[in-house]
Amino acid sequence: MEEFEPRIIAFLCHWCTYTGADLAGTTRQQYPPNIRIIHMMCSGAVDTIYILKALIDGADGVLIGGCHPGDCHYQTGNYKARRRVGILKEIFHQVGFTEDRIWLRWISASEGKLFADTVTQMVEELKKMGPNPMKKLWLA
């Protein structure tokens, strides 16, 4: 059987994590190709709908990347993101949807290596978790 390759949708903030991911690229940090990046202006711009949509449509994981606390270029977007993710993960926990498929991480523009490591680690964790059951459930 072919090994399961998780699909990760990543919402990365323009100023920090997206730039950090780019730095991973320019410094040739290698990481698995399982991630598809969607460029957002701020981690606080990630609507719950996007995360849910991705997971219901069958993404195995969602990564939200933002500036470290205190570094948000829009003052407090990352704190807002954290609360939003916290609420969503609690909902998931309550309704039996694995909340560990959602990762929120603070990765700065200078942390290219951290970005690559995070993706590598997330892919490993998701492989352990197995495919998102929603991939097969057409009844959503």
Partner: peptide, 12 residues
């Protein structure tokens, strides 16, 4: 709203 020192486990 939000708090600066809440839910710190959420960010790994």
């Amino acid at each position: 709203t939000f708090k600066e020192d809440e839910l710190q486990g959420e960010s790994g």
